[in-house]
Write a protein that binds this DNA or RNA. Structure first.
Lengths: 305, 305
DNA sequence: CTCTGTCATACCCGGCAGGTATCACCCGGG
DNA sequence: CCCGGGTGATACCTGCCGGGTATGACAGAG
């Protein structure tokens, strides 16, 4: 054993004392470092110098009585506790940001005590056209309808939007989205189709199976970003429906989509029902602890469609 | 109109600027004031003087660009935005507290990167004896079983425990508990019984209905605390099973319980099955974003019982 | 051996969180 | 009608700490 026995902070008489209260500033700093794994870049991202950041992280570690980062020469890596704080801290910061945003919005339309009367609805750009239309029309006809702001977002961003308060309610599609942590109601369920170039031999088939679609020579299936990253594979990386539609029309890829996608297919596309694909279920989802009356009304309307 | 037209903060050129970042200290302060509705008591609870607290709240309101409290002479009350921040802020503070606790625990058993190997399981004291026993035994037999610490708590505290990180997983019983915001798996479902004093006339019945039990002359149904407060009603306010058992035995009240409660009934009790009570469903529940391997193992074991 | 890239240390400064003293105000009681 | 109690707001001061700059320690590449 070497001279440094255990914790060398000899003044640590009250280490691990009570509830060290974890300021959001510290969380922001730690998340930056944990994501960059580099104090310099993290400091730059935070708009501050590197030394105070180092010190802040050290203080955080001392206050928690836990080692979060292992500083090997040449780079930094997360310890087990660091990984835990990375996940939990993200959730905590999201919740804090959500509190600020929702409070500000509630005050902006400041009626004395009637909560807010404006809802932000997040959805995948272009998805659930038909359903959304019916929902908005039906809800607008309600007597005490709030104003609905539609917030189109990328493929999997709705969860983040709900979590950090940029949205109050979202339309989500399992199995693409995860409903973990939200309350939700099922709105509809639909089968899936394979979308092929119109001239492709398989386009004449009455039905297809997932296995057949996944293994067409020369037509690798398109890859969508899942939480910011693309799964490895041969297919093209696409970001939105327009890209996808074009690549299919050009005969470069194939995609599996809900049947409602027929609404926006091109003339150069062919759609073939899939026999064995699990259905796509559309849900309306909202933060589990929400207490908004307007939201409750919207959900009630949605479930009656 | 008087001189103060609308917002008198004339320097508010950059009000509602970007993301005002809401420190946890501010949240703590605001929650204290919002709960006490009294600056002096809130300051005392926070262990500080009243003037800095007033100032901090004012700064918070200015930074959010929102009025949170209406200071009527003689007392303080929440505005709409204030109520929103009360709810959202509680959630946010719980999340930060959870982050701190879980990180600290992860570091305490500090293995380099194997996450933590100790789970805290919260449950209603005395509930689900049988099921819990089988679960613990089965899980202990698993090859890589983590250590399980059982944390008995009051009637509806499991949700809070999960939210603020004092527990990692809980056994919950719908419809008593709400699963909102958690992931969960159903473990078992059971009917309910009315528990009466042994000598009571209705104790001879083969079955009863909810309506009959709710309206027995001289036997008002017991009232449980629901999130800290008791619903109004004539029945006695009880806090735990022992109190309840005693009051029933004394012929003062009647209760509707899951059939598994038969395990701890007294000789002076009589149990009659209910025909129309919705079943009690036992779930194992955990924070939606949890990534613990040990937790996954426990859930797998539980669903296989 | 030197140079470079990295994180830690040393030191200083300004802002702000917190304390004390006091004010402004309403309200109830004599 | 005036006065005292109780409330939150204001004024002012002070010490701490968050943040900056300069520099050190150390490992690896060449």
């Amino acid at each position: 054993m070497d001279t440094t026995d255990a914790t060398d902070t000899t003044d640590a008489t009250d280490a691990t004392d009570a509830t060290a209260t974890l300021e959001t500033r510290e969380l922001r700093y730690f998340l930056a470092v944990a994501e960059e794994l580099h104090f310099g870049r993290a400091a730059e991202r935070l708009g501050m110098a590197q030394p105070p950041l180092s010190r802040a992280i050290q203080q955080l570690e001392r206050r928690l009585g836990v080692c979060l980062l292992s500083r090997n020469r040449r780079g930094v890596s997360l310890t087990g506790a660091g990984e835990v704080l990375l996940h939990e801290g993200r959730a905590a910061l999201d919740a804090t940001a959500a509190a600020a945003r929702r409070t500000r919005r509630a005050g902006a339309t400041g009626r004395p005590s009637g909560h807010r009367d404006r809802l932000v609805l997040a959805l995948k750009a272009g998805a659930s056209h038909e359903l959304l239309h019916r929902l908005l029309d039906a809800y607008a006809a309600e007597p005490d309808a709030a104003e609905i702001e539609v917030l189109p977002c990328g493929m999997c961003e709705q969860e983040e939007m709900l979590r950090d308060g940029r949205a109050d309610v979202a339309l989500m599609h399992t199995p693409y989205n995860s409903l973990a942590g939200f309350d939700s109601e099922e709105l509809m369920s639909e089968g899936r189709i394979a979308v092929l170039p119109a001239g492709h031999p398989l386009a004449k088939r009455r039905t297809l199976s997932l296995a057949e679609v996944g293994d067409i020579p020369g037509l690798p299936p398109a890859r969508w970003p899942s939480h910011g990253t693309y799964a490895p594979g041969p297919g093209p990386e696409i970001r939105d429906q327009t890209q996808l539609a074009q690549l299919i029309a050009l005969g470069r890829t194939v995609a599996v989509l809900p049947v409602s996608a027929r609404a926006w297919l091109w003339a150069e596309h062919a759609a073939v029902p899939l026999t064995d694909a699990p259905p796509v279920v559309t849900h309306i989802a909202w933060p589990a602890h929400s207490r908004s009356l307007a939201l409750a009304g919207l959900v009630r309307t949605a479930t009656r469609l």
